[in-house]
Amino acid sequence: MSSVLGADRTTSADALVFAPGVYAPQSDTFLLADALEREPLGPGAEVLDVGTGTGVLALAAARRGARVTAVDRSWRAVAATRLNAARAGQRVRVLHGDLLAPAAGRRFDLIVCNPPYVPAPRAGVPRHGAAVAWDAGHDGRAVLDRICDGAAGLLHPSGALLLVHSALSGVRATLDRLRGAGLDAAVMERRVVPFGPVLRSRADWLERRGLVAPGEEKEELVVVRAERV
């Protein structure tokens, strides 16, 4: 078990303050945390956590001595992350805003992002409600493509993006898009996990779309690492 969330991952998660409607740490969070732990971060490295939620990844980077900026479009997430950073005794700059926009004009050594990526029956991205944290249009790429297109402009040379999402959203599309933006991209982590409540509730729709096989009950999560060369 990774130590990035502390000696006991469950205990560390339980120590967090959660806000209603804010995405709580799940399998994708932990997979990205494992990738973050293996990333070489020198003292004072500049890290951007996009869609920080409760601040788990931001705190993991801060504990390693990084200078961390965390962003979320939810004011509740901003408040939860600020409170969790204070409780942990870690300095994290938490900004309210949409994806990469609050960090415009800055450069980072590492960007970590767990964006909404679940294919959904409705087009576009919801503006309100809990689904804001996971629904991302018919193909699940309404947010992923924006991250892929914009990350390179916020990275120092040799800086990297760590991006987690479901294979249902198109791994090849992510790699192609990042490479098209001038980044050297590859899958560095894979993990198969059972469907959660959201995917179980739309399994029939996913099957009709040809995204899952009949009776499928698991999905593959991937972490893509993309470096500015």
Rank of each mutant, 00 (worst) to 15 (best):
D176H: 05
S169Y: 06
S158W: 11
F195W: 07
M188R: 14
R190D: 10
S166V: 07
R191A: 11
T174N: 11
G180V: 11
S169F: 05
V192S: 13
T174E: 06
H165P: 11
R209G: 02
V164H: 09
L175R: 05
L168P: 01
V192K: 11
V164G: 06
V198A: 06
P197A: 15
D204G: 07
A186S: 14
A181W: 06
V171A: 09
W205S: 03
R208P: 01
L211N: 03
V193T: 12
G180F: 13
G180D: 14
S169H: 06
S158D: 12
L154I: 04
G210E: 00
P157N: 00
S169W: 02
E189H: 12
V171E: 10
R172W: 07
L161T: 01
H165L: 15
M188F: 11
G210R: 09
R190I: 15
D204V: 07
A203N: 06
D204W: 08
A160Q: 03
L183I: 03
R208A: 09
R179Q: 03
P197E: 15
V212I: 01
L175S: 04
L154Q: 02
R190L: 05
A203K: 04
S169M: 05
V193G: 04
L155F: 15
G210Y: 00
A185Y: 00
D176I: 07
P214F: 00
V192L: 09
L162R: 10
D204A: 15
P214D: 04
A181H: 10
L155M: 14
L163E: 01
V164E: 08
L162G: 14
R202I: 14
V193F: 05
A213E: 10
V198S: 04
L175H: 02
R191H: 14
L155E: 08
A160C: 13
A186K: 03
R177F: 03
L178D: 02
A181L: 08
E207K: 03
G170R: 05
A167V: 15
A173L: 15
S158M: 13
L155D: 12
E189I: 14
R200G: 09
R179M: 00
V187M: 09
L161E: 06
L183S: 00
L183E: 01
S201R: 13
L175W: 01
R177S: 13
A186C: 05
L211F: 11
L206A: 00
V198T: 10
F195H: 12
A160T: 07
D176C: 09
S201W: 14
L199H: 14
G159E: 02
G182A: 10
S158F: 13
A213I: 05
H165F: 13
A181Q: 13
L206Y: 02
D176F: 08
S166Y: 01
R208M: 00
V198K: 02
D184W: 11
G180Q: 10
V212C: 00
A181P: 06
R200F: 02
R172N: 09
S166D: 02
L154E: 02
G210T: 05
L211W: 06
P197G: 13
A203E: 06
G180L: 08
D184K: 05
A185D: 06
G170F: 05
V193A: 08
G170Y: 05
V171M: 03
H156P: 14
D184S: 09
G159V: 14
P214S: 05
